[in-house]
Structure formats: structure tokens, C-alpha cells
Nucleic acid binder design. Structure first.
Lengths: 199, 199, 199, 199
DNA sequence: CATGAATGAGGATTCATTCAT
DNA sequence: AATGAATGAATCCTCATTCAT
């Protein structure tokens, strides 16, 4: 009934919980949430099925932890990038740098992104967290621009649109979806769009 | 195991198969593929559970049919739009028209899009069909532009990027994700981007 | 999710549902509710585990059906007895007859009685049904007495107490609990008590 | 498997074992034997789950200890009552006193009684102990009566029947099962029965 | 003695698919 | 072709018991 989930304080326990989350991360990425069962997660993590429920309420709870890790993986590099912006703004150079980072991040996380994002429509919390992630990225970028003296009307809309374009490009580029596309050229086009967007 | 699936020739059978696909469409949209079971689909379609396997190999097979319907629903309106392009090209007007149509289409199909797209990572055929859809849309648009005398370098890349931008905007606008965004202004920004993309 | 339980109309289905209830009856009687699992019930009934859930919502639901059968088994013979009371009341003879019937009934149903009665403290419905059973028996007997011209103060209390005494005796006699007891003599004592209770 | 169970000699250990038994007592009474798990017992007792198996072979073993406590709780007050009988026997007064005590005892122990008694049909030892309890009570009462000069034929049967009647009444009265019963009147009826049983 | 994390068998339930009618 | 009852493998989760520390 009312369960006690161990909030692990000791190093060994923290490590074990991490192992489970990691196993979930990998398996969800490989096969999707619904095609992964808890026994598999336990096995991959090298633990018993029972202990999984010592650290998590249920399977969904593992997924929520995986989601947090994913969000950290995606948000972290962007944050780092913007925290290192110095001196005058060179929009084109910055856009280029961001795009590379977004592609790189997407390359590492595309599979888990799909697996988790697909839960958006049926899981309220997942939905909320994905939206919040986009909001925070938009804010972070907008704040940085303003701090460095940039100004423009509808800045939030410009930034948000830029993020959308970056994401769409990254998704294309990572999966190399279409043989008829020259992704190098497409990249140039994207960068030009961003440049024009910010004057 | 692999049984003979009736390819229905008679009107009544065709109708029945359509009912099942339709039920699958609705339910996948409402609750996702994995949260929908075949008994529900049969019930919604007003047929027995058994007969579902008279028309489809398995649950996935229903989904594949649903996917085809979805693709038709999305592709059809765009085709129609471009088949009606007449006289000189007014890029801005055309972009505006397309964007409205994409948003409208997305509004109707967002739920099923999510449900099906999420299978992309685990189902090869789904993945392939989604890619093909994008390819065909790119080609259709590109061909139309050329036919009407438009020319530019890297046209495929420009068109494809435009599609990405339209889709991203439509997704945002439909779900009205972010309270901090003024979607009317965002729409203007998107149109301007497209305009600049095509000179 | 929201389940459809077949309320069987056809003979074959009714028969199958009965088989499951019967298997539950036997197993609960043999090993108790908690020591019986649904797979065993299915096996004993000669059906698959799955179909059990076609006829019952869950394990408890089987138990509730078993309870109804049990109540019929216990109540039926008593009803029959009182429906056959004719002419003038011979309390002593009637008491004797009832006692025999109660012992006989108890002999057949003691095991399931224990199994089900033990759920009384944790299952509201079980509790209610057991109470109702006692109430109905008390009423039935009281009504019959009155109909046959018997009258006394606190009749309900007398009847109810008699039932308690009968039950207690039956329980003792069936299990032959105590070697030091002469159950034939004890029976005489019980009959005498009843006689004195009703003058 | 079968480990050495510590028979605690030291005060602290005795105390700890008592705590566990007490926790088991409470929880079995609250939720029944099968709905209580060992982790809960340990928690309620303020000990670790592991140490429970230092003092008890298994969960059943705890229950057996609880049963002993229960038997003491029920038997003790009756013993005390009869040890205090002095002078000439006033059957009616004595019966009244006993009945009050039985009701009082039942009030305190009804829940655990149900929980433990329900195991009677599946656990040989539990069954035996419950029978022995009744036997001992019968003997104790009979001996006391004889010691105080009372004599009658079939004394054991009379006493045992009385006990049954007391128990049945107590059970009714404690749970206040039936709204149509006037329990005060019923009590009078019971007392009168006892009186007539012993002349 | 004590802890509480860990084990893994077991149990209730679901559901894609088959089959008797 | 159609029905819907039937199957049984698969899945999530629990819990008595053990074990490393």
C-alpha cells in the first residue's frame, strides 16, 4: 500500500539508483518506453527486479527520472555556451556555435528524446517538463542577448523561432533523413536565416 | 501463423475495413498506440474482435493503414494548394496561404501525428514513410516553384527548411505551448523568414 | 481500464462461469481465500487464467459470487424447513428438526464458512452480507412462529439467541472439537434450552 | 534455512521481542494476517526488518506468539474471576458477572480474535490452541463450581454450552450487528438461560 | 545483535491472437 | 465472413526471507 521509497543517501545506494536510471535511459532509447519491461531494466542495471521498487514507485517513476537526466543533458550544454559568451555579440558566430552544439547534443540524445517526447500526449508531467525546458532555453538565450546589449522587438518570438529552426535542422542532420539534401548547404541557409532574424 | 488476409473487394467488406482503420485512427489519436487495445478498436468499429484479424495481420498492420490515411490527410491539402497556384508567383502570399493550411492540417491531425511519429524510432516502415512524406512534399513544392519560373540555388534545401519552419510553427501554434509567446507576431516573423529565404 | 464483464446469457457461458465459481468455492474452502491463487482456480475449473477475467472483475469478485452461493446453501434449507411447518406448533420437535438441519448444513459448509467469514473484518460487503443473512433467518423464523399463532415478548431476541445457540452447537458438533464433551447430551441440553426459551 | 532463533535472555532482547509481538498483534487486529507484511511489523515495532528473523522463524511464528498473548488476554480475566469466587454460589449473579467480563474482554479483543480464528482452518496449531483454550475455560469453570459444592449431571456439557452462549452474545453485543435487536433484553434472556441451565 | 538493502519467486491482471461455432 | 469466447504468455508489482556490512 503506501510505499516507502528509499531516498538513497549513501554512496552505494545513490550509485545503484543511478544504475537503474541509466539502464532505463538506455533501454527506453533503444526500444521505447512501452517495449521495455522492468525486468529488463533490472537486468541491465545488474540488480534484482525487487529492488527497482525500492528506489522507484513504479515504471513511470523511472521514466520521470530518465526525463530529468535527459533535460539536464540537453539544457546543460546550452547553458554552458551562453555563460561563456564574452565581449561584443557576433550573431553569426554565436549562431554557428549554438547550431553545432545543438546538433552534437541531438546526436547523443535523439533516441531518448523520441522515446520520452512521445509520452507527452498521455502524461501530463512529461508534457509540462518538455514545455518548461523550451521556456527556460528561450529565457536563457534572451537574457544573455539583452545582457550583451542586443535589443530588438519581439525578441522572445525571434529567439523561440530560432530554437525551433535549430532543433528541426539538428533532427534532420542527425538522422540524415534525406539523400536529396545537402546538409552542409542547408546549414548555411539556417545560419543565414538566424543572422537575418537578428538583423 | 501468417494467415491469408482478405483484400476486400466487396463494398461491404471495404466499408468494414475502413471502419476498423477509422476506429484505430481515433483511438491511437486519443490514447496512443500502446494504450489502445484491439478489443477497443473492434468495439469502436462496431465489429467483432475476431474479424479484425480477417482484415489485418496484426495490430501493427492497423497502425500502418492508419499511417497511410494520416499521410493522405496531411499531404492532400498541400497538393491541392499547389495544384491551384496560378499566374505569377507571390512568394509572401503563397507562404501565408501554406502556413494557414499547415496550421489547419496540424490542428486536425496533431494527436495522431504524435501517436504515429513516436513509433518512428522502433518501426522501420513508419520511419521510412514519414521520411518519404517529407521528401514528397519537398519535391511537390520545388516542382511547382520551378514550373512557375522561380529559380534559386539550393532550392531543395530552401524548400525543405521552409517546411521544417512551417511545421515547427504549426506545432507551437496548435498546442499554444507557451504563454510568453505572441503567436501572431511569431507568425509574421515566420512569414518574413520564408520571404527572405526566397529573395 | 474500464472492463466489460460478460454477463453470460448462453448456457455454455453460464456453465463456465459456474465452474469457475465452483472451483473458487472448493479452493477457498480447502485453503482459504489468501492461499488460493487465480491460476489454481482456473486450473480447477478447467479454463484458462485469462477467461476468469472475462467473467469476473477480479479475484474478490469470484469470492463475492462464492459468498452468494454459500448464503443460498445455508439459507435455503432453513427456508424449506419453515415453509413446511404445518398445523400446531410443537416447539420441541421443531427445534430438534432445525438443529439437525443446521448441523447438517454446517457439516457441508463449515470450511467455506470459515474462509468467507474471516473476510468480514476487512471487506465491507462480506460483512454486510453476513449480517443480512442472520437478519433474514431471524425474520423468517419469527414470521413463521407468529403465523402459526405463537406469541411472546421479545420474540426477535429469543429467536436470534436461538440461532446463535444452534450455530454454536453445530460448530462444536461438526468439528467434534472436544473429547471431553458428550455431544449427544449436549444436544439434549440445547434442545431443552430452546424449549424453555419459548415456554 | 531453519536458523537458530535467539531465545532472548537479556532484558533488552526480551523487550525487543515483545515489541515485535505487540506490533504484530496490533496490525493483525487492524488489517488481518494476510494484509499485514513483515516490514510493517518491524516498522511499527521500531526495529529493522532483519532482526525480526532473529527472534522469529517466520511470519507465522510471530502470529503464534500473538496467539499466545491473545489467549492470555482472554483466559486471564476469566481465571481471575473464578479465583475470586467466595462463599455460597449465586449462579445468577455469577453469570451476570461473567457475561460482563466476557463482553468486556471481547470488546478489547474482537478484532484480533477474528484475525487469528480465521487461521484455524488452515493452521493446525492455531486450531489446536483455540480448542485447548475452550477446554481450559470449561475445566476451570467446572472445577470452581464443584469446589463450591455445586453438582449436576452433564456439568461439562452445561458449562461448555454456557461458554458458547456467552461468546455468541458477546460477539453480537460488541459489533452491535443488528438494529432490530434490543441487546439489553437479549442480555436478560441469556442470563435466564444460564440460570435455568444450572437450575 | 542489528541494520536495511537486496533477492527472486509468486501473484493478479492484461491483451494480442486464435478458434470453435 | 463473422462472432466473441478462449488462450496463455507477458507484465507490473509485492513481500517473505536472506545477507553483506
Amino acid at each position: 500500500m503506501a510505499e516507502n521509497i528509499r531516498e538513497p543517501k549513501q554512496q552505494r545506494s545513490i550509485e545503484k539508483k543511478r544504475k537503474i536510471t541509466e539502464a532505463g535511459y538506455e533501454l527506453f532509447a533503444e526500444k521505447g518506453y512501452f517495449n521495455t519491461n522492468t525486468a529488463e531494466i533490472a537486468k541491465r542495471a545488474g540488480v534484482s527486479t525487487g529492488i527497482v521498487y525500492g528506489y522507484f514507485h513504479d515504471k513511470r517513476d523511472i521514466m520521470l527520472d530518465v526525463l530529468d537526466i535527459y533535460i539536464g543533458n540537453v539544457f546543460g550544454p546550452i547553458i554552458a555556451l551562453f555563460d561563456n559568451v564574452e565581449g561584443d555579440l557576433d550573431i553569426k558566430a554565436l549562431a554557428s556555435e549554438i547550431l553545432d552544439k545543438v546538433v552534437e547534443t541531438h546526436k547523443k540524445n535523439a533516441a531518448i528524446h523520441e522515446a520520452l517526447h512521445s509520452l507527452t500526449s498521455t502524461d501530463k508531467i512529461v508534457d509540462t517538463k518538455f514545455r518548461a525546458l523550451e521556456g527556460e532555453m528561450t529565457n536563457k538565450i534572451t537574457d544573455t542577448l539583452i545582457k550583451h546589449g542586443y535589443s530588438n522587438d519581439y525578441l522572445l518570438e525571434r529567439v523561440h523561432t530560432s530554437i525551433n529552426i535549430f532543433q528541426a535542422y539538428a533532427h534532420e542532420a542527425v538522422f540524415d533523413n534525406h539523400t536529396y539534401i545537402d546538409y552542409v548547404k542547408m546549414r548555411e541557409i539556417v545560419i543565414n536565416i538566424i543572422e537575418s532574424l537578428f538583423k
